[in-house]
Design a protein around this nucleic acid. Structure first.
Lengths: 116, 116
DNA sequence: TTCTATCCATAGATTGGCTATGGGTGGAGG
DNA sequence: CCTCCACCCATAGCCAATCTATGGATAGAA
C-alpha cells in the first residue's frame, strides 16, 4: 500500500460507509486496521472516496457492536499498535446482502439519472 | 392508516433525493407537481425508489429556497389545485454538475464493491 | 528537533430522510 | 347520496449517520 496520508475533504455517499468497510475487509481477506481501511478505500477508488477519521472510527465501533466485525489490538506493519478488524460470519453474510441491495438501488438510480 | 398509492416503505440513497427530483424535472421537460414527481421516480425506477411525502415536500421547499426550482400554483390533470415546479436555469446547471459528480462517485464505489 | 505520516478516539453540530399527523378535493361504486 | 380511495399539500419532531474540530501518542525521516 502506498504511503499517503488521508485527505482532509471527505467524499462519500451517505449510508454506504459501513458497506464499504465490510467489503474492503472481505476483499483483502485479512484483518486490517482503521487507518489501513481508509487508505485502501481511497486507493482503490482512485482518490475519489475519502473517508474522514471522524466518520471511520465511529463506524467501526458500530460494526463491532453489531457483531459484524471483531476487533483485536496488534502491531501494525510500521511497528505501532493498532486495532485490527476482521469480518465475522455475520459480517460476511451482511456484506453480501448489502451489496446486492446496493446494486439494485444503483441500477434503479441509473434509470432515473441517465438519459434514456 | 394506510393510504397507499404512493409508497409502502421508502427506499432511497440518502443525499440523492434532490438530485433525483431535479433530474426528473429535467427529463420530463415540463413543470410537475410533487405527487407527480414521486410517481415518476417510482415508475421509472420500477418500484425500487420510493419517495416518502414527508421527505418530498421539504426537499421541494429546500430546492425552491435555493432557487433551483420555481413553484407555481395551478391545476392538475385531474382538476385539483397543485403546486407545479419547474427548473430554473440555476437548477439546470446544478443538476448537470450533480449528476456528473454522482456518476463519478458511483464508478468509484463500484471499484470497491465489485469483484475485480 | 522538528515535522510528517501513522494510528486511535470522542464531543458536538449539521444534514436530511422518516414517522406521524394534519387537512382538503374529485370521482367512482355501493 | 354517501363513503371510500386516489389525489395533493404540508409540518413538527425524531433519529441516524456523517462531518468538523479536537485531542493524544509514536516512529522515522529531514
Amino acid at each position: 500500500m502506498t504511503k499517503e496520508a488521508l485527505s482532509k475533504k471527505a467524499v462519500l455517499l451517505p449510508g454506504t460507509l459501513e458497506m464499504l468497510i465490510l467489503r474492503s475487509l472481505e476483499r483483502t481477506g485479512e484483518p486490517m486496521h482503521g487507518y489501513g481501511i481508509a487508505l485502501y478505500i481511497k486507493q482503490i477508488s482512485k482518490e475519489v472516496l475519502l473517508v474522514e477519521e471522524g466518520s471511520l472510527y465511529p463506524a467501526l465501533q458500530r460494526l463491532a457492536i453489531k457483531g459484524l466485525v471483531k476487533a483485536e489490538w496488534s502491531e501494525s506493519e510500521t511497528g505501532r499498535k493498532a486495532r485490527f478488524y476482521k469480518l465475522t460470519s455475520a459480517g460476511r453474510k451482511q456484506v453480501t446482502e448489502e451489496v446486492a441491495g446496493f446494486e439494485k438501488i444503483l441500477e434503479a438510480m441509473l434509470r432515473v439519472v441517465q438519459p434514456a
